[in-house]
Design a protein around this nucleic acid. Structure first.
Length: 511
RNA sequence: GCUGGUAUAGUGUAGUGGCCCAUCAUGAAGGACUCUCAUUCCUUCGACCCGGGUUCAAAUCCCGGUACCAGCACCA
């Protein structure tokens, strides 16, 4: 019809018969913020983030903190910080980390967690549930070796322990608690089915024995008290239920955990929380983030503590002047896709620049300073703004009476330059001859510093996992340690102390 | 090997059948402003893994490939 009578004719028919068909649907809008949580009711959402305190938080942990705490805001729910500290040998907790993690979480999310739960404080609850599991017959004490059970798992065959009745299981359990068994000699398994398609799920281990005499728990109140310890899948499952967690957002490496735990929940007659996953993240400059590896390196003295600026820890990022808002923006932008991604730090830096620029006072820092004498008439002092876009931040007054200035070594090869906010000069033989106070020619603008205002200082910079210290002359200032300033023509830096500055944004490595 | 997951510009990301010759950010290039190589603003560049199918219509649904990732620990 359209071909024969023309589109306009069709349109007029439609207008008469069915005008709603002509209305344009609203254009698709870009989703703002995080995707909605499934089955979430405002005020009734409980979320958690559960790191192992085997070291302070890393850049990667920030994702869990930011995403979960943002959902907390979205749904006016509760956010739990939980310490999954149930391993004393492979990934033993670090005592100092407990307090540090709470502080870091508070710094990053802008508020303290609604609840802090420590797994090693709640062993009685795990024991209780293990016991009822054995009593009800959906768990059993298995005395096979790990290797032997591996065979059973692969061949889908039941191990001999699987048929024990609950009386036997309970007495074996008592024996486990009494310390009859050594690590590896007995373990409590959740009965699933040995012919499940997914081998990872078959009769998975829930609790095991740890030698806490040789590997005591670092918390003194726990120490060597317990020898039977829950494994992550069991401890986390029980604790999520106990805390009333409604939604879990976590890495997709834990997908099989969800499946294991769902089987356990069925046994107990509980309903498993809604679960969302994110994929694995790498940072171009760092690769992955292994707390265990960092801990080895820090303890070996390869780094100057956990806040060494080369480290991908939250402490190091904070030290470098990365603002919590920048980290929040960064992680929210990535969202919770299950894709595995590798991101450059420049994205984080772009967010940080936005967070920091308006409040960053400008300062002059002369790298590898060369001395020049001013020649010609000039005023006794010069005033430069503390921030070009914010006059209310005041002015810096530089005294020129001495007539000596510092210039950057890289700049002095230029013959004719403009000393920023001051004068056009000609450079030769360590003399800076003033040709004009007004800007006359399009000479390159360089930063400079009168000798009277300059103090020795060191700019610390990280590059390719190395630390570079650039010495130079820093403009005298009274910004307290911790202030993020902008060194003109160099970049943002954080004041460490009277003599040291740390460059915030590592310059891109040339690879 | 078994099980599961993912695939949109350089890097990320939005988009669940028509509004998409595809969004936004970042990046790169250029420009405006600026006495900083900063900030702000403008312009440009650049993508739907491959092959079939369903449909009037596919980034979106189906099938088959391919690639990458994860779990199969008495770690978390």
């Amino acid at each position: 019809m359209a071909a024969k009578e023309g589109l306009d004719h069709l349109r007029s028919i439609l207008e008469a018969e069915a005008p709603h068909l002509l209305e344009k649907r609203a254009p698709k809008k870009r989703r703002e913020g995080l995707t909605e949580l499934p089955n979430a009711e405002k005020g009734k959402v409980v979320l958690r983030f559960a790191p192992n305190p085997n070291g302070p938080l890393s850049f990667g942990h920030a994702r869990g903190l930011v995403i979960n705490s943002t959902y907390r805001e979205m749904y006016e729910g509760e956010f739990i910080l939980r310490f999954d500290d149930t391993d004393t040998k492979v990934k033993p907790p670090l005592l100092e980390a407990y307090e540090q993690i709470v502080e870091e979480a508070t710094w990053l999310t802008g508020r303290a967690p609604d609840r802090v739960v420590v797994a090693s404080d709640r062993m009685e609850h795990y024991y209780e549930h293990a016991e009822s599991m054995l009593r009800e017959g959906f768990g059993y004490v298995c005395r096979c070796t790990a290797e032997a059970f591996k065979e059973h798992r692969q061949s889908k065959s039941a191990c001999p322990c699987r048929d024990q009745n609950s009386t036997d299981n309970l007495s074996l359990w008592k024996a486990m608690l009494k310390g009859t068994y050594k690590p590896g000699d007995a373990v409590v398994r959740v009965k699933t089915e040995m012919d499940l398609k997914n081998p990872a799920l078959r009769d998975w281990p829930a609790l095991r024995i740890q030698d806490t005499k040789t590997h005591p728990h670092p918390r003194p109140e726990v120490g060597s008290t317990y020898t039977v310890w829950p494994l992550l899948d069991f401890q986390s499952a029980v604790e999520d239920h106990l805390q009333g967690v409604t939604h879990i957002v976590r890495g997709k490496d834990l997908m099989d955990s969800t499946r294991k735990q769902t089987l356990l929940y069925k046994h107990f007659g509980w309903r498993y929380p809604e679960t969302l996953y994110w994929g694995r993240v790498k940072v171009h400059e760092w690769g992955g983030f292994s707390t265990s590896q960092m801990r080895r390196d820090v303890e070996a003295g390869l780094y100057d503590g956990w806040s060494d600026p080369r480290l991908p820890t939250l402490a190091a990022l904070k030290e470098r002047g990365i603002q919590p808002e920048a980290l929040q923006q960064f992680w929210l932008e990535l969202g919770i896709t299950q894709k595995d991604i590798s991101v450059p730090l420049s994205t984080l830096y772009a967010h940080n620049t936005k967070a920091v620029d308006n409040g960053a006072p400008r300062l002059s820092f002369i790298r590898n300073a060369a001395a020049f004498h001013l020649k010609g008439n000039h005023p006794a002092e010069v005033k430069v703004p503390c921030h070009p876009n914010h006059e209310e931040m005041g002015w810096r007054t530089w005294d020129l009476a001495e007539g000596q200035v510092w210039l950057e070594a890289d700049d002095v090869v230029k013959m004719d330059v403009r000393l920023k906010e001051f004068a056009d000069v000609e450079l030769h033989d360590n003399e800076a001859r003033i040709t004009s106070l007004e800007r006359q020619q399009e000479h390159p603008v360089i930063h400079w510093l009168p000798a009277s205002q300059a103090d020795e200082a060191v700019l610390v910079e990280t590059k390719n996992n190395e630390i570079h210290r650039i010495s130079g002359k820093l403009e005298r200032h009274n910004h307290p340690a911790g202030t993020v300033v902008q060194l003109e023509r160099i970049g943002y830096a954080r004041v460490l102390d009277g003599e040291n500055l740390l460059l915030c944004h590592e310059s891109a490595s040339e690879v």
